[in-house]
């Protein structure tokens, strides 16, 4: 089992900290907007570390001036998927960057079962390791 002291999934920024409050999220979003980033909301119920592409909740939000717009979208997502992972991502469109520059989890399921380590014996006595998320044993939409 992969664990860390917090007993929760740690991906992106601030994931070792206690959950950010809405006021703290607003400050982060405001910081990004001042740098000209475009925020977007994504959600998933498959938190495997190699699952890079989460589901988009609406379009990325370009040309916003104030964090209230992002919070509005985030709250809509929380209402729709209260028990899934939700993250905010900031896209920097500057030439030669053109990628995600901020990303942090803003919503988690109530219980996070974590990951198991699966050992597969192959040729000789070689062992291959797989990280398996307990959460994904059930079909999509019924996890957590």
């Amino acid at each position: 089992m992969i664990t860390n002291p917090t007993g929760r999934i740690t991906q992106g920024q601030f994931s070792f900290l206690p959950d950010l409050t809405d006021a703290e999220i607003t400050l982060q979003v405001e910081y990004g907007l001042n740098k000209g980033y475009a925020w977007s909301v994504e959600y998933t119920d498959d938190p495997h570390p190699r699952n890079t592409y989460w589901e988009m909740f609406g379009m990325p939000m370009f040309d916003l001036k104030d964090a209230a717009g992002v919070l509005m979208e985030l709250n809509a997502c929380r209402k729709t998927f209260p028990n899934q992972y939700i993250r905010l991502m900031a896209f920097d469109a500057t030439r030669n960057t053109e990628s995600i520059v901020m990303s942090f989890i803003v919503n988690r399921p109530k219980t996070e079962p974590g990951f198991g380590l699966v050992r597969q014996e192959t040729n000789g006595r070689t062992i291959r390791y797989t990280i398996h998320s307990y959460g994904t044993d059930k079909p999509e939409g019924e996890r957590y």
Partner: peptide, 14 residues
């Protein structure tokens, strides 16, 4: 709905 919401989000804070 998405169109109106997008405009509203852009206008937030103003």
């Amino acid at each position: 709905a998405p169109k109106t919401k997008e405009v509203l989000k852009k206008a937030m804070g103003g």
